[in-house]
Amino acid sequence: MSALLEVNNISKRFGGLQAVDRLSLTVNEGEILGLIGPNGAGKSTVFNLINGVYPPDGGSIVFVGQDITGGPPYRVARQGIARAHQIVQPLGGLSVLDNCTVGACFGRQGLGLVPAREVAREVVDMIGLGDRPDMLAASLTTAGKKRLELARALSARPRLLLLDEVLAGLNPTETEGMIETVHKIRDSGVAILMIEHIMRAVMSLSDRIVVLNLGSKLAEGSPQQVADNPEVITAYLGDSKLLSVAEKPA
């Protein structure tokens, strides 16, 4: 497997807080890399650094051989990295279909309006919003908005998808549906870097996992290796009962 995204030694400081501290990680072609860590470990900051929302204080980010360090976000998106936000950011006054058309128009392929609309329609169907393409994004339910985040990111036909807690706030049925969708996306050849708090989901979905604590890498390896790592248990899982859940992937 060849490396799609290489993050080398990036750091970011906000005032007195070292949010990310010399972090390196690699996402390979076609794999799902889980990024986990306790609250405030700097996971979302890593995403913001990768897609150029803010520039890192040091280090570099290379995507498919191109240096994309420091953004701007729209250039990173054009290179083929799409993102689903933790806090959903629908373009509320636009329809579901138009939201996805934006993704397709300005994403990796940079399609014209008409082909973009077709791509958007396909993705909307695949993600399960096909019954309400003309609904205004603002009037979707929470689960609907989460799906829209994902659909919009996929419409860009990215090579790498950044998923920031797409399962948070969903009920069990919706979670199942979403996990299935993520599998489908990976099978279509898109690599995924995902932040997730629901351990069962991360353990079952990820090929590899990186554990973040206080902005730096604590551990890296297969789900099983990470779950067995004593440092991870004390720093992150803390309670060994949580681990027993992790050991039995669904």
Binding site: Y74, A77, Q89, G93, D98, T101, V102, C105, F106, L113
Partner: peptide, 27 residues
């Protein structure tokens, strides 16, 4: 209104940060 440019503008009008992450060259 019926062009890609217009769609990008509408996206900016709705949420500029989200538009930028989606690839709209906002500046």
């Amino acid at each position: 209104r019926h062009s890609k440019f217009g769609l990008g503008l509408l996206a900016i009008g709705q949420n500029e940060d989200a538009a930028s992450v989606l690839g709209v060259p906002t500046p």
